[in-house]
Amino acid sequence: MTISWPDEIDAVLVNDLTCGLSYLTPAGGAVVCAVAPIGMRDRELGTVGFTTSLGFGRKLERIERDPKVALAFHAREHGIGDTSNQRYVLVQGDARFDARPNPQMMERLGAQAAAYTGPPRRGPFWDRWLSAYYADRVLVTIEVTRIISWPSLDAAGTPEVFGAPLPDERARPQKAPTNGTAPRVDVAKAATKAATLPHRLLAYRQSDGYPAVVPVQVAASGPDGVRLTGASGLPEGGRRAGLLAHSFRAQAIGLECSQYTGWLEVDGGGAVYAPHTASGFKIPPNKTIMLLANGLLARRGLAKARKEGRAGVSGESR
């Protein structure tokens, strides 16, 4: 059933420059990364969207395998609307994509993106250099199942729910990984990096199969992992979870991201996150450097996607 949402929610979906995408792993965990929604939504159809790169094959493969995803609208800075609306908005739904999108559609999206990322660079060099970037883009559309909205960006207070009711049952603890739950990367380094960046999101699989994404703060670290606070409503017990810490500037310039997968343990004493894998990047706050990097990464990603046969496979056929 198509759901609708009020104007104050729609204003958030239109405004935000970036949001956190969470998708599920085959082992029952959740990954969270930053994407650009650029205001893509249709209230009549009950859909929300974002674009990503064909080069991120694992992300697309996992979305195709299990289309349940979530988008966390968690940061108002550098958007295009009224930043006084400080609601934290979580969109949950089922994603679909087409790895061979209509060129006219992508051109329209490029024009729409200009309001968020600035006008595109033009000229013989930039047209050639960025052609792979635009050819590499994939539109992902999410058929919205529910929207959960809290009155503040820290997700405190009582949420409003639009669409399907929240599941009655809390997520049950998961079986521990074969290799154990202890940290596998430098905990102190991960805690310092996550605490330094202004935005942090924690994701896990809730009982109805959709990812839940909550904002968190770093309190401390120790041999057992990173101690997190502010994660209201986390289910007790242990489970696989993803953690994202990131920052961005106007027009998505100066991106910095640290992304983790690991094990989350919640009890009466709080939440401890043991990171198992770590990845990330940092791009200098210079638009020319960013565009050069985008073009280079897109060329590599597009070549990889074509080599692996992903550039000609449509997610509509799953």
Score class of each variant (00 low, 15 high):
A250N: 13
Y88F: 15
T52W: 00
K304Y: 03
D82Q: 05
L201H: 14
R96H: 11
S314C: 11
T158C: 13
A99L: 01
R172E: 14
F281Y: 15
D98C: 07
L130N: 13
A274N: 00
M106P: 03
S317M: 13
G81P: 14
D42W: 08
K59E: 05
M106G: 08
V32G: 02
P124N: 05
S221A: 10
A303P: 09
D127F: 08
S207E: 07
T178D: 15
D42N: 13
V266K: 00
S314M: 07
T181I: 10
P37A: 11
M1Q: 12
L292F: 08
T145F: 04
R62V: 02
L255V: 09
R200Q: 06
G230T: 14
P173S: 04
Q259S: 06
P173A: 14
G237S: 01
L244M: 11
A135H: 11
M106T: 11
D42S: 12
A27L: 07
K193R: 13
D66A: 01
G238A: 15
Y88W: 09
T192Q: 14
S149F: 06
L60M: 13
R310W: 12
A250Y: 03
S232N: 10
G268M: 03
T52S: 10
P235F: 06
P120W: 13
P124S: 05
N15S: 15
P173N: 00
A303T: 15
I289N: 04
L255W: 04
G280W: 02
P215F: 05
P103S: 11
L21G: 05
A212D: 12
L264E: 01
G20N: 13
I148R: 11
F50Y: 13
R227Y: 12
P215L: 11
G301E: 06
G312A: 10
D66C: 05
Y260D: 02
D7Q: 14
K193S: 02
P101I: 02
Q112Y: 10
R58Y: 02
M40F: 09
D127C: 12
E61I: 02
T158H: 09
F73N: 03
K287Q: 14
A114L: 07
G93K: 06
R170L: 11
Q206W: 12
C19P: 04
R299I: 14
G123P: 03
A114F: 08
V31Y: 01
G209C: 09
D82I: 10
D66Y: 00
D267L: 06
